[in-house]
Structures are given as C-alpha cells and as structure tokens.
C-alpha cells in the first residue's frame, strides 16, 4: 500500500486549468520536492492535497483512504500538516500562544502524550525551532516579529500538530542564506524522525541538497520526476526554467 498516492488530480478555475491530471506517489519517510515556474500549479496542488481546495476530479489516497474533498481541518487531523507561503500567524497573540491553537486540535489530544501545561509545551517546541527561550522573543506578539521568525512559527505549528506528512509551501522564500542554513538541518531532523515531507520550493540549490526525489510542474502538468541529479539533466526542465541556473 502506498503512503500517499495522487491519481489524476485536476482543478480548473473558471476555464483556466490550474492542475492538469497530475499523478505521483510519495513513500513513507521520503522528501519530495515540487518545483516549477510561477503559475505552474504548485500551490494549487498543495491546496488540493491539504483540503483547502476541492479537486474537480482525481483521488488523493493517504494510507489507503481517499481524502480528496474532505475539510482542511479533518485532513490536518488525519496527519497531514502544512505551512503557508504567505505566513499566517495569529497577529494579536504572543508567539508562544500561537501554538496553543494547534495544541487544542483533536489530533494532539488523540495522540496523547501531551499532558501538562500547553504553555510549557509551546515554549519547548519554539525553543527547538530556534526561538531563544530566555529572550523576550517567544512572548512578543506575532505582529512585531520579523519574517524569519514567522516562517519558523509556521514550521512550529506542524510540529505541534505532530503531523506525519508535512507539506512546506515555499518555506525558504524571503529568508536569508543564514536562515535557510539554520532551517535545513531541522528538516533533515524531521526526516530522521520518520516524517514524510513534500516541499514546494523556488530555491532549487537548497532544495536539491536535501530532496530525495523532485517533481517538476509546468502549466499544471507534470513534466518530469526523478532524483535531483536526473532532474538537473532533463532538457525539458531547463526549457521550463529558461534563464534559471541549475
């Protein structure tokens, strides 16, 4: 049984085909990168898998169950966590209280293990992800945190949810090289912990260092899939990415 299997996924927006019969599979514990030029349907694919959009047709099989068309919260509770390309913190809440919300989810309750104070737990997670516990940072409202911290907060949410399949939607966009360098090991650590990861990314160099497989989308269609090395050699990929150095 495949872990995650996408079959003939299709989505149109008023005549524009955003995602055109895409099929792919992800094995448990793998890191799949999805790349492609702007408007190639990457984020739409993510939204379709995580339930923020309903596909027109096609199946999303997760551990043998078709989850296409379920509510986003339901899918999250089944174990698929996601981050947003545009950061979506709760601006009026302090950073650590941002994690209190996912800690209320049925999934965390069902997984058990999390007894005791939600605040302590939230602070623990934030410390792991790079918020210095003794500094004032975790206690500041999210509205005044810099972008790098907000991206980490997005990551912290899926960690708090204990998702087993994590979809990062352009996690690296807008981050400095140093920040990327500090986040990449965290992703590798997640893989080591047995999580499965799908990364939608524009920063190819950083992605190719950690990805096991890479899928290329162009205009809603899958044009190539393979190991990072294979993908770099594909002429069709170079064509889609004309002007982008690989």
């Amino acid at each position: 049984m495949e872990y995650l299997k996408i079959e003939n996924l299709r989505k149109t927006f008023g005549g524009v085909v955003a995602v055109d019969n895409i099929s792919f599979e992800v094995e448990q514990g793998a890191l799949l990168g999805i790349i492609g030029p702007n408007g190639s349907g990457k984020t739409t694919t993510v939204n379709l898998i995580t339930g923020f959009l309903t596909p027109d047709s096609g199946k999303v099989m997760f551990k043998g169950r078709d989850i296409a068309g379920l509510r986003a919260s339901k899918i999250t509770n089944l174990g698929i966590g996601r981050t947003f390309q545009m950061v979506k913190p709760f601006y009026r809440l302090p950073a650590f209280k941002n994690l209190v919300v996912p800690l209320f989810s049925p999934r965390v309750k069902r997984m058990g293990g999390h007894y005791g104070e939600k605040d302590t737990l939230a602070l623990d997670i934030l410390e792991d992800i790079g918020f210095e516990r003794d500094s004032a940072v975790p206690y500041k409202p999210a509205s005044i945190l810099p972008h790098g911290y907000l991206k980490r907060l997005e990551m912290a949410r899926v960690i708090a949810l204990q998702s087993e399949l994590i979809v990062f939607d352009e996690l690296y966009s807008g981050l400095t090289l140093a920040e990327v360098a500090s986040i990449s090991p965290m992703i590798e650590k997640l893989i080591e912990a047995g999580k499965t990861i799908i990364m939608v990314e524009h920063r190819l160099k950083e992605l190719f260092k950690i990805a096991h497989r890479v899928m290329v989308l162009d205009q809603g269609k899958k044009i190539a899939e393979g190991s990072p090395r294979e993908i770099m050699k594909q002429p069709s990929v170079k064509k889609a990415y004309l002007g982008v150095e690989l």
Binding site: F90, P102, S105, R157
Partner: peptide, 12 residues
C-alpha cells in the same frame, strides 16, 4: 486573525 491557519491547525 487568520481563519485558514486555524483550519490548518486541525480545528474546524
């Protein structure tokens, strides 16, 4: 603040 993030937190 952000209803989609609430949904992504597993809460309806």
């Amino acid at each position: 603040d952000n209803d989609r993030a609430v949904e992504a937190s597993g809460l309806s």
